[in-house]
Structures are given as C-alpha cells and as structure tokens.
Nucleic acid binder design. Structure first.
Lengths: 208, 208
DNA sequence: GTCTATACCCGGATAGAC
DNA sequence: GTCTATCCGGGTATAGAC
C-alpha cells in the first residue's frame, strides 16, 4: 500500500506532521463520545494526539471553530447514511417512514456526531458552513416526500418539515433517556418514529 | 403585606440569610438565560447573590445538584403552564393540537427552563426527583389524549407519545434555530407543531 | 507547522473559624 | 448558615524560537 511519508512513523507521536487538522476532528469525536460536548477541550485533544496545546491554533481559531468542523462532518455522514439506507423499490410512504426510523437510529448509533450536530451550542450564525452542511439532510427528506406529493411543492415542504421534526423529536428524547437505555430503547424509538411518520402521512391533509 | 424577617433587608447583600437555596435556583435560571447551561457556574451565581463561593455547598452537594433543582422547577412550571392554557370547551383533537403548540411556545418563552429540563446534561439516574417532576407533563398529554381514544389505553399511550415527541421535535429545532429567530419563528413553529399534531390525530390508525 | 514556555483566568471543592 | 482562606486542577490563548 502506498503511504504518504507523513504516515510512516505511527510510533511515538503518530499523527504529528500528518494531517493534524483532520486528526483533531477525529479526536474531538472520540472525546465527545466519552465526555460529551461539555467535556471536550482543545487541550485534551492535543494531549491525545501527542502535540502541544498550541498546535491546534494553526488550524482552528478557537475551540468553537473545531466544534463547527465536527458539526460539518456530522451532517455529511448523517445525510450520506440516511440517503444510503433507502430502499428505492418501497412505496413512498414506507420510504419516508424508514427515513424517520433511520434518523433515530443514526442518533443512537452515532451519538457524538448527533451531539455535535445539534448539541454543540455553537453560534451557527458565526459558522455558515454548518448550515450549508445541514442542507443535504433537509434535501433528502424533501426528495423522499416529493414523490408522494406530486407537484404540490407547498404540501411537500410542509410534510417534509413535519416528518423531520417528528423524527428529530424521537431522536432527541431517546438521547435524553426518555425511552430508556440500550439498543432495545433505540429500536423502540426508531419504530415509534416510523409509525408516527406513517400517521403523519396518512393525515397530511391537516397540515395545510 | 406580611414579609418574613429575612426579607426586610434588601439592600447590601439582599438575599443572605434569606432563602439562599431558592435564590440560587433563581440566579441559576438568570445565568442560564444569559450564558447557557454551559456558562453557568456556582461561583458566578454566588457572586451575584453577594455570598461566597462556599455558601452554596450548604444547600447543594455540587453544581449538578443545583442544575437538577432547576430542572425540577422547570418541569413544574412547564406542566402548570401547559395544563393552564387548555380550553375545556374545545373538541379533543383541537385541545391536543393546542397542547403541542403550547409546548413549543413554552420552549420559546422560557428558554432557560427548557434548557434546564432537556439540555442540562445531568445524569438523571442520579436525580430521580427530576424524572418524578417530569411525570405530570407526560400525564397532561395522556389525559388530553384519553378523551379522544375512549377506553383504548394502548392507543392513547401510543398517540400521547407520538404527540409529545412531535411537539418536542418542533421545540428543539426552534431552539436550534432551524425555524429562524425571533417571535415570528416561534409562532410559526408552534403553528406547525399544532398542525402536525392534527395530522397525527387524523392518521392515528397507523400508530398501531 | 510545531514546540517551549508562560501568563492568565476561572471553576470546583474543602477546612476551620465564627 | 455563612465567611475566610486556600488548594488544586484545568482550559484558553499568545509570543517567540526552531
């Protein structure tokens, strides 16, 4: 395999002179997984990568800027995973319900990413990149809903927003522990979200 | 009006020797409103009340215990406000939809309380009081839904959970800025939540 | 692009006096 | 129940050398 020169000395230091910027994002995700967003710090991330606390400042202006980069990554993975899990053959309403279920399972299976995307507490107006990264996610919902609503764009927008909010609510409450803990709770929450989405689709006349 | 002795010296120190415990909860809410949960600290709260940093430890074992107390207060106010805003005369489906709207408006109008209730990051298993305080909220949803579902308790449980999650999703996304900022955004989110709830009620057959 | 060194500030938490 | 005094640890951020 063809390694770049920078990847050849994994011992003692490992990442230095590699892609520190990307490594910091990875380390941040690990840290968030272990200690939550609040427990994440540039200092600890640096320590784990074997660099000094000053090094990150070459790549990120401050802590929040790194968190924003993690959020961007999170939305990318999120959208990709959701879009990838779709069954093209299934009927539209089933596809939409499956998306809601997938949304919840993503939150359960990639909690640090979900936290970074929605619980990082960064000022999004300062990081428009984050909003931009979030758009494909919205787009995926919208695309799935459009096939159901024919040409009625207003109806599609309303339904997509409702489905997204419902999926998000189930995910957020799951993370909060309202559905219990463990993978059974996650499965239950995903199933509930999917069923609620079906109900939403059935009763969508009421949305307008 | 009959003041207790401790309330008679509002100048110079004010709260000392008053009900410091309650005052700390109030101060915490103010601080969360200004700096978010993450920016809240016992030290700063103490400073504002004119007591030393050691004083709070007579009333709370640590920072998290105070946050838990704030969460308890939050759920109490939340449930009371939600139950109080109900129009007994309205048809059941309208009442349920109005509750979802009220849920979102509460989040918008009492953001520090909403944050304390759902975004404080405390370990709820360590503070069962918080879960206990949250139950009336669930109960209010359940009661409203029961009138619609007749005797079918399973159906009522499922619908109440779905409505709660949908309301929560809209509230969380609003807080996150997904619906924009300002009171117009809040109103829009509340209206969307209410409509989505109506759709949920209409299509509730799909929940089982 | 990374390191050394450092200045700075802040929060948590405790012991012991009053 | 509150204060004084204090310790400890930790994070942010910068200047300047290499």
């Amino acid at each position: 395999m063809s390694l770049t020169a920078s990847e050849e000395s994994p011992k003692r230091g490992g990442y230095h002179h590699g892609d520190l910027k990307a490594a910091l994002v990875d380390a941040a995700i690990d840290l968030i997984a272990e200690r939550g967003v609040r427990g994440f710090s540039l200092a600890e991330a640096s320590r784990r990568l074997g660099v000094t606390v000053a090094a990150p400042y070459r790549h990120f202006a401050d802590r929040d800027e790194l968190l924003a980069a993690v959020a961007v990554r999170a939305f990318q993975v999120f959208a990709a995973e959701l879009a990838g899990g779709l069954d093209e053959a299934a009927p539209p309403s089933q596809r939409i319900a499956a998306m809601a279920g997938g949304y919840v399972r993503f939150a359960a299976g990639h909690r640090p990413l979900f936290d970074a995307a929605f619980g990082s507490g960064i000022d999004k107006s300062r990081y428009p990149e984050v909003e931009r990264a979030a758009q494909p996610l919205t787009g995926t919902f919208l695309a799935a809903v459009r096939t159901l609503c024919g040409g009625d764009d207003d109806a599609a927008d309303a339904l997509a927003a409702a489905v997204g909010a419902t999926a998000h609510g189930h995910a957020a409450l799951l993370i909060d522990g309202a559905f219990g803990k463990g993978s059974e709770a996650a499965d239950a929450a995903a199933a509930r979200a999917a069923r609620a989405t079906l109900a939403l689709v059935q009763g969508r006349e009421a949305l307008r």
